[in-house]
């Protein structure tokens, strides 16, 4: 890091000399860094979407709200417990919540039309938001400052928090672990089988409910980690704080090809960086709209996303 710190000003100065009036990277560096950081957080959330969609063909609208609840749990726990213990509990409670939501709201509808499950997901999202509103009286709550990761660090011309650097690293480690889990373990093999063909894998003796529950546990675990990182950056949590990051993470999942984990990660980084560059260019009103414009362009041009498999309709 010191090495980069020492040389970056020179490199940047060099670029500035060659492009005096054009876009200067030094001006945009904070935005790129913020983009990479938020991209990593979106990536962690979007894996939850993409895995659930891959297995259940369900857009889990409640996932963003599970992420929000994780934020509130951290606030309430850290009021009494030390931070590192409450962080562990946040992850456990969030995983439990994801598990319970699946068991209560999605499992009874396994044989219902897909539309019903989606409505159920919307209902859960509504319920979680209203519960959060009830417990907080609708007020924004201050997120606790986690030592070390919320300290400032200077990279080149940009000052940022350590969490900005930590996020992409942690994201890549977790994604690598997940890919390993899916490729080389028995449960991973079961997951792949279930996402390929629900009925056949059930006939082959795979316990579908266990696989689905584990998928939700993994998704919620990553959402909890993402919430620790995300809210350290944004400092306040509101009952609707999960809606936008959730939607964007879903867009990232679709962008990369839903059902594909590397796709979701790449999509999330692209969306995070683009969004922050647009903010940097002074178009803050359109930073959300741009995400969706990107989604529509990719859907129209390549409906299955960047890395999605092409599906054919059989009559």
């Amino acid at each position: 890091m010191d090495f980069i710190n020492a040389f970056l000003p020179y490199i940047l100065a060099d670029i500035e000399k060659t492009t005096p009036d054009a876009i200067r990277i030094a001006d945009y560096l904070p935005y790129i860094l913020a983009g990479i950081s938020v991209g990593g957080q979106y990536a962690l959330i979007s894996i939850g979407y993409t895995m659930v969609y891959g297995i259940l063909r369900l857009i889990n609208f409640a996932h963003g709200d599970i992420f929000m609840v994780a934020g509130f749990v951290m606030i309430y726990l850290s009021a009494t417990l030390p931070l590192h213990i409450s962080a562990v509990f946040v992850i456990l409670i969030t995983m439990l919540l994801g598990f319970v939501v699946e068991r209560v709201a999605y499992k009874p509808l396994r044989n219902a039309p897909r539309m019903s499950i989606m409505i159920s997901a919307i209902g859960v999202s509504y319920l979680l938001q209203n519960c959060a509103w009830y417990f907080t009286s609708g007020l924004a709550k201050q997120y606790p400052e986690i030592p070390w990761i919320s300290e400032s660090i200077t990279i080149g011309s940009a000052t940022t928090k350590i969490v900005t650097i930590l996020t992409p690293v942690l994201t890549i480690i977790l994604v690598a672990a997940l890919v390993f889990l899916i490729k080389y373990t028995k449960i991973g093999m079961a997951m792949r089988a279930v996402s390929k063909d629900f009925e056949t894998s059930r006939l082959m003796g795979i316990k579908i409910n266990t696989v689905i529950s584990i998928t939700f546990l993994i998704g919620s675990f990553l959402a909890a980690v993402a919430s620790l990182l995300y809210f350290t950056n944004y400092t306040t949590v509101t009952p609707v704080a999960g809606a936008m990051p959730g939607l964007k993470a879903f867009v990232a999942a679709v962008f990369g090809g839903i059902g594909s984990i590397p796709g979701a990660v790449v999509g999330a980084f692209i969306i995070g960086i683009c969004e922050n560059l647009i903010k940097g260019a002074g178009w803050t009103t359109f930073s959300d709209a741009f995400t969706f414009a990107l989604l529509i362009i990719i859907l129209v041009a390549k409906p299955t996303g960047l890395f999605g498999e092409k599906s054919t309709d059989k009559v």
Binding site: R57, I59, L247, F250, V251, V254, A289, F292, I296
Partner: peptide, 27 residues
């Protein structure tokens, strides 16, 4: 462009358009 998409993709694309419309009106 959007109506060529199927089920979930259509849902998410129209949702996206609604958000874009909202941003444009606040411009």
């Amino acid at each position: 462009p959007v109506l060529r998409l199927k089920s979930d993709y259509l849902a998410i694309a129209t949702l996206g358009f609604a958000e874009i419309i909202r941003a444009i009106f606040q411009w």
